[in-house]
Amino acid sequence: MGRGPSIEGRKNAEDAKRAKVFTKLIREITVATRAGVADPAGNPRLRAAVDKALSANMTKDTIERAIKRGSGADGGADMQELRYEGYGPAGIALIIDCVTDNPVRTVADVRHALTKHGGNLGTSGSVAFQFSRCGELVFETAGDAEQEEKILEAALEAGADDVVNEAGESSVLCAPESFEAVQQALAAAGLKPARADVVMRPANRVAIPAEAQETLLDLIDWLEELDDVHEIYHNAAVTAGIHP
């Protein structure tokens, strides 16, 4: 009779997943520090990265080491930000933001992932025009009209630009420079988002054929497994298992 995964096996898998998340967070902290100042109080991007790291239960010592590396006080590799644009299965537009110390490796890994899943790497600007940069705070409402109304009122009071209700979620949208203020105002109103960040949001979403959905999911999983990949944005319509 077969047995399921051992407790040790599950723990090792969880540890590996956690380590990968930490790798991405450390790189974001490092780059955010280099892009501004080493003090989170005076560097909004760094403050957001530190908040994410703390939410993921990263120790303060690890966070401080990443900040030191970014400030140049602790050596460290020369991390840089790169953005790749391309197409996935069924012509879905993709923006893939990376943080890397080896661009040659990163572009090869991203190109391989796209090609393997029926997509291709595009040139700079080939799909970016279909997206806009904005602050996005997503709340899980499950179609609760009363909750949706509460979020709408609080968001407009906080200075948000719009609230979009779809697939059981309410997405509060605002200008990138207003993101922190809107986030704080919503928190003061007792509203905690499931996720919140400054993102690249598509102007329109396109339906993806059922037969291509699994391939797209596999592509996104493949890209997320790459240490260098920081964020992935796509314009596929929200379907089961595929996050916006």
Rank of each mutant, 00 (worst) to 15 (best):
residue 1 M to N: 09
residue 15 D to E: 11
residue 19 A to H: 10
residue 23 T to Y: 00
residue 25 L to R: 01
residue 25 L to W: 00
residue 29 I to Y: 00
residue 32 A to V: 03
residue 33 T to A: 15
residue 38 A to W: 02
residue 40 P to N: 02
residue 40 P to D: 02
residue 62 T to A: 14
residue 62 T to G: 00
residue 69 R to I: 04
residue 70 G to E: 05
residue 72 G to N: 07
residue 79 M to V: 05
residue 79 M to D: 05
residue 84 Y to Q: 06
residue 90 A to E: 06
residue 93 A to G: 07
residue 105 R to G: 13
residue 108 A to V: 01
residue 110 V to M: 13
residue 114 L to N: 03
residue 118 G to V: 03
residue 120 N to Y: 11
residue 120 N to A: 14
residue 120 N to C: 15
residue 122 G to T: 00
residue 126 S to N: 04
residue 130 Q to Y: 10
residue 133 R to L: 13
residue 137 L to T: 01
residue 138 V to F: 03
residue 138 V to D: 04
residue 149 E to F: 10
residue 150 K to E: 10
residue 153 E to R: 11
residue 155 A to R: 03
residue 155 A to T: 05
residue 158 A to M: 07
residue 162 D to I: 11
residue 168 G to E: 09
residue 170 S to F: 05
residue 178 S to R: 07
residue 188 A to G: 12
residue 190 G to H: 05
residue 192 K to L: 15
residue 199 V to K: 00
residue 202 P to C: 05
residue 205 R to W: 10
residue 213 Q to A: 13
residue 214 E to Y: 06
residue 216 L to H: 07
residue 218 D to C: 09
residue 222 W to K: 11
residue 227 D to I: 05
residue 229 V to I: 09
residue 231 E to V: 04
residue 232 I to C: 01
residue 236 A to F: 05
residue 237 A to D: 06
residue 241 G to A: 12
residue 243 H to A: 15
